[in-house]
């Protein structure tokens, strides 16, 4: 079981008032899980407000490329960079009360006012969008539409998807809690042991 909580921390250590998930620890953990013959499946529990784009994408890419069966369960919130991590698992679940915020990325710190800054940001945005839409059932057009929607968030553009809305939009597979997520993981682990391709999507 892996928890992705608080801020996904990138190359800059965040102040101690933040709860963080550190990529430099999570990435080797995923390698160890993949290599351990005694580990038959991985449950990823998410309650995250987002965080560093590249650290989040790195974790998401590793989860997506594992042979070990993976299931994600969104609890509380799976916002921003939590979205690609949620959809990276073979099977994804969200509890009815959890929310996922889809919104544009932003730059922090000094911003140089040149067209290249926007192009850089746009390319970064594109990496997130491409990963998400290639690992879930939502179209790129619909994802961008939700991302740039106005009038839903008080101080931002974007969309908040609650539980079943995330499933209806094709972002998450099922509404369900711990029992459903563990049942799915056991099923995939059993199928893998039986020599079948199981219920994996890719």
């Amino acid at each position: 079981m892996l928890t992705v909580v608080g801020q996904v921390e990138g190359h800059v250590s965040l102040p101690s008032q933040n709860k963080t998930t550190r990529y430099e620890h999570v990435l080797p953990q995923l390698v160890a899980i993949e290599q351990d013959p005694d580990i038959e499946g991985l449950l990823v529990l998410l309650n995250t407000v987002g965080g560093d784009v590249e650290a989040g994408l790195a974790i998401a890419e590793l989860i997506a490329s594992m042979r070990t069966p993976t299931v994600s369960l969104v609890l509380g919130g799976g916002h921003s960079i939590g979205v690609p991590i949620s959809v990276a698992a073979d099977r994804s679940f969200i509890v009815p009360s959890a929310t996922m915020t889809i919104h544009p990325i932003r730059l922090s710190g000094m911003v140089i006012g040149v067209p290249q800054t926007y192009e850089y940001l746009d390319k970064m945005q594109d990496r997130v969008v491409q990963f998400v839409v290639s690992h879930c059932g939502m179209s790129q057009e619909r994802y961008r539409e939700l991302m740039f929607r106005t009038g839903e968030l008080a101080r931002d553009v974007g969309t908040i998807l609650v539980g079943k809305d995330a499933v209806r939009e094709g972002l998450i597979h099922e509404v369900g809690g711990m029992a459903a997520a563990l049942d799915a993981l056991r099923g995939m682990a059993g199928a893998a042991h039986g020599g079948e391709s199981g219920t994996r999507r890719r």
Binding site: Q7, G10, H11, V12, S13, L14, P15, S16, Q17, N18, V49, G50, G51, D52, V53, E54, G56, G77, H79, S80, I81, T101, H103, I105, R106, L107, S108, G109, L121, M124, V128, D156
Partner: peptide
């Protein structure tokens, strides 16, 4: 660093840099 978070930077980084 590009942060993709629902929390504003002032909440994440606080008023003073960490020692």
């Amino acid at each position: 660093m590009v942060l993709y978070s629902i929390l504003p930077p002032e909440t994440i980084f606080g008023p003073e840099p960490r020692e």
